[in-house]
């Protein structure tokens, strides 16, 4: 009964690796906060601009009072240290905007929409990209493969906001099939539960299409090249030579190997998704994280900007770690090599 012990040794090695990885990630996170904090605070403009400069009745004294209130009169390293020590207790501070609510609270109420839309579109992307990639690779250089390649190139070059505008024009204005902005209709409060679900889905359909098209091109191209890579290997040749049907070769032998690199790609796609949400949400006027960040940037709301940056960095790093762990769990070769290392 050697197997369980071997497996537990491997798991131990994996845990060790994860521990190291997490330590490194914390260091990276610290680096990111350091750079962003200084860049943002040293840049011209201040959160008090909105309230003071634009108000002719406000005096210089009022500005100083406000700066003292926000702690902006301290030297920068003191401000950073205080911000960092608060962050250690997961306290992101209060927003510097007029409502001065806690940053974390404001972020958390926006998070579900943005994350939800991204997860749905990611699932859709995978459902479409994997079969597309497999088929193009299996029928390399066929008419189908060429057509997909053309579409992929168009997808790469398509600015997401232009696609959104075209969809709004076609589905929203010319045919009036779907609403083009906001999350709910005017009469939302009067709708039944089922009606509410339908209303929100109708509002989210176009944004999700835009997200999906945006990542579909890259994903299906990547899937295709992974599949081609696997299909050229000897064990596939063996499988085909012994007369296995194409379906068994593709789904039984090739696909499992070709899917592995996709895990890493998914982990790496997090920053792109977060960035994309700013554009999509601002076009469709959706109250998500991207809009919150855009508003914070415009108002120079330091604590809010930093809160969003930290969250985005944490999500990115979590994506990386998760991809790493999943890769290790999914690929026995990696588990083995870690034990030796």
């Amino acid at each position: 009964m050697q197997r369980p012990t071997l497996f537990s040794v491997q798991l131990g090695a994996l845990a060790m690796r994860c521990g190291k990885k997490i330590l490194w990630m914390l260091l990276v996170l610290w680096g990111i906060t350091l750079i962003s904090f200084w860049v943002i605070h040293l840049a011209p403009g201040s959160p008090t601009d909105m309230e003071i400069t634009l108000n002719p009745l406000a005096s210089e004294g009022a500005r100083q009072q406000l700066e003292a209130l926000y702690g902006l009169d301290q030297p920068l390293y003191v401000q950073y240290w205080e911000w960092l020590s608060r962050l250690a207790h997961l306290d992101f501070g209060n927003s510097l905007s007029a409502d001065s609510r806690p940053v974390l609270e404001k972020i958390l109420e926006r998070l579900p929409l943005t994350v939800g839309m991204n997860v749905i579109s990611l699932i859709l992307t995978l459902l479409l990209a994997v079969p597309l990639g497999i088929l193009s690779a299996w029928k390399q250089n066929s008419l189908f493969d060429r057509a997909v390649t053309v579409l992929v190139f168009l997808g790469f070059a398509m600015p997401s906001f232009w696609l959104a505008l075209l969809l709004m024009m076609y589905c929203g204005i010319d045919h009036a099939w779907l609403p083009i902005s906001g999350l709910t209709s005017m009469d939302y409060a009067q709708l039944s539960v089922w009606g509410k679900v339908r209303d929100v889905s109708a509002h989210l359909l176009l944004p999700i299409i835009v997200y999906t098209v945006g990542s579909l091109a890259g994903m299906s191209r990547f899937m295709r090249s992974c599949m081609l890579e696997v299909l050229r290997q000897d064990f596939i040749l063996t499988a085909r030579a012994k007369g296995l049907p194409a379906r068994t070769v593709i789904f039984g032998h090739a696909l499992r190997n070709a899917l592995l690199p996709l895990i890493t790609l998914l982990g790496l796609s997090v920053p792109g998704l977060i960035g994309g949400s700013v554009i999509v949400e601002s076009i469709f006027a959706l109250p998500g994280l991207g809009q919150l960040f855009y508003g914070a940037v415009m108002a120079r709301d330091y604590t809010m900007i930093m809160g969003n940056l930290v969250l985005a960095a944490v999500l990115t790093l979590a994506g990386n770690i998760l991809a790493d762990v999943c890769y290790g769990l999914a690929d026995p070769r990696i588990r083995g090599s870690q034990k030796e290392a």
Binding site: I35, V39, A43, P44, P271, V278, V297, A312, T316, L317
Partner: peptide, 19 residues
């Protein structure tokens, strides 16, 4: 590695808006 983990679009947006 650090730069690759940067939520770069957010930072670009913030820096450009500020400058």
């Amino acid at each position: 590695d650090v730069m690759l983990c940067f939520p770069s679009f957010f930072l670009v947006l913030a820096v450009i808006a500020f400058l």
